[in-house]
């Protein structure tokens, strides 16, 4: 199968009168890491539960490996593995027993042809739990549980790995290690990964594609780098900022004061040379300039804020 592993089209889900997901569409291509970002309550887990077949959509369609997960969950789970947060585990089992038990359900063969015992040991080693393999899960910290949930998802190795908030409770070093594990899974074993997080910083530099949800609405969908498009600012410093602002306004350009004789123009609104020419024609001298690029997070927050403002305006107009 060369098409997308996950296809979501105009997906909607209502909880009573509340719309948890509104017309969400995206594809997850094989061999990529797909990030799902958004604040708590933005609809990420609802979306993942629809993909797992746990709940039904109210509208639209979701397909995993081309199958409807609600109707054909067991078939989907042959090659997909989900790990939901917070981690739920059988407290009385050891880590090794836990993974072996879950791996025995449905008994899908390992893609690498390993025996189950070998695959279990390798998964525990991969997440750094090899030395606690025979300890009861009840004695594990939250972070260790999180790692065990990831480990159980790796036996047998899936084609699609879906992780819900996998970094919750992990220390910074463990987060770093997790990123390494995920990259290796993608690059060395060709595992397609869909992971969600409410912290965008965790997805930055890791994901190939990013979907950002806010209150069930799609804020952004595409490569993370493009999230910054249009978000850079041109900062100009001159001797009379107030007059400069008038000059730009006359040209129909929005220029905001940044204090200390500085003006800010939106990225791409005007080439630097043209801006300098406008100032020179007005008798002002451009003393200094710089292009300020926001962090991914700031860019996302800016987009969310604009989307929320637009929704609020829309509601007011309807009212």
């Amino acid at each position: 199968m060369t098409g997308p592993l996950v296809e979501v089209r105009a997906l909607r889900r209502m909880f009573g009168s509340r719309e948890a997901l509104a017309e969400v569409s995206f594809d997850v291509q094989p061999g990529t890491i797909f990030g799902l970002a958004g604040a708590n309550g933005s609809g990420k887990t609802t979306l993942l539960k629809i993909l797992a077949g746990f709940i039904a959509p109210s509208g639209g369609a979701a397909r995993v490996f081309g199958l409807d997960p609600r109707r054909r969950r067991a078939e989907v789970m042959r090659d997909a593995r989900f790990a939901f947060a917070p981690p739920a585990l059988y407290e009385s089992l050891t880590a090794r027993e836990h993974i072996a038990l879950l791996a025995s359900l449905g008994a899908a063969p390992d893609r690498g042809g390993r025996s189950r015992a070998v695959a279990v040991a390798a998964a525990l080693d991969e997440v750094g739990l090899a030395d606690r393999a025979d300890d009861r899960v009840g004695t594990f910290s939250f972070g260790m549980r999180q790692r065990l949930v990831l480990a159980q998802a790796l036996v047998p190795t899936p084609r699609l790995l879906v992780l819900d908030e996998p970094t919750d409770g992990l220390d910074p070093l463990a987060v770093l290690e997790l990123r390494g594990v995920l990259r290796r899974l993608r690059d060395e074993r060709g595992v397609t990964i869909l992971l969600s997080s409410h912290l965008l910083v965790e997805l930055d530099e890791l994901v190939d594609e990013l979907l950002v949800l806010d209150e069930g609405q799609t804020i952004y969908c595409g490569p993370p780098a493009r999230l910054l498009d249009g978000e850079a600012r041109l900062v100009l410093v001159m001797d009379d900022a107030a007059r400069a602002a008038q000059l730009f306004t006359r040209r129909g350009l929005a220029a905001q004061s940044a204090g200390d004789g500085a003006l800010v123009l939106g990225d791409g609104s005007l080439p630097l040379a043209e801006a300098a020419e406008i100032l020179r024609a007005g008798g002002l001298e451009l003393l200094e300039y710089r292009v300020e690029r926001p962090t991914l997070e700031r860019a996302l927050i800016a987009r969310m804020q604009r989307a929320r403002d637009a929704r609020a305006n829309g509601k007011q107009e309807r009212a």
């Binding site: 789970m77 989900f82 879950l102 359900l105 449905g106």
Partner: peptide
């Protein structure tokens, strides 16, 4: 209530 049912349902086993 223990949410372990979710662990079972993410395996290739029918309800």
């Amino acid at each position: 209530s223990d949410r372990t049912l979710g662990l079972l349902l993410i395996r290739p086993i029918t309800k």
